[in-house]
Simulated assay, not measured.
Amino acid sequence: MEISLDMIKDKVECLQAYDFKELERTIEDRIGINKALMLRVKQVQHQVTFDPLRNKMLYSAVVHFAVV
């Protein structure tokens, strides 16, 4: 077994939720987790779309983390 200690320089996470507050909490949780990896938020993109199957709005976000 080989252990690699390469440093993560960039990471992109895609998140989604049917409630905006839930998406916000998820983003905050992911920020906390990535702080442990010494990654900070570089950019956030978000989008809202209607899900006709659930008859609800679907909120999504793409969060780009990078080494500062």
Rank of each mutant, 00 (worst) to 15 (best):
M1N: 11
E2K: 14
E2T: 12
I3K: 12
I3E: 12
S4I: 13
S4P: 01
M7L: 15
M7V: 15
I8T: 15
D10I: 04
K11F: 12
K11D: 07
K11M: 12
V12E: 14
V12G: 06
E13R: 14
C14L: 12
C14Y: 15
C14Q: 13
L15A: 07
L15F: 11
L15S: 07
Q16K: 07
Q16I: 00
A17M: 01
A17D: 14
A17P: 04
D19F: 01
D19K: 03
D19P: 00
F20I: 08
F20W: 02
K21R: 09
L23A: 07
E24A: 07
R25L: 10
T26P: 00
I27C: 10
E28F: 06
E28Q: 14
E28I: 11
D29N: 09
R30Q: 08
I31C: 07
I31K: 14
G32E: 11
G32M: 05
I33P: 00
N34R: 15
N34Q: 14
N34W: 06
L39G: 08
R40H: 10
R40K: 11
V41W: 00
V41A: 01
K42T: 01
K42A: 10
Q43Y: 05
Q45W: 00
Q45A: 03
Q45I: 00
Q47H: 13
Q47A: 11
F50T: 02
D51H: 09
P52D: 10
L53P: 00
L53F: 12
L53K: 06
R54W: 00
R54A: 09
R54L: 14
N55A: 13
K56V: 04
K56Y: 05
M57S: 13
M57C: 04
L58C: 04
L58R: 09
L58K: 13
S60R: 11
A61S: 13
V62G: 02
V63Y: 04
V63A: 04
F65R: 03
A66R: 06
A66S: 14
V67I: 14
V67R: 15
V68S: 11
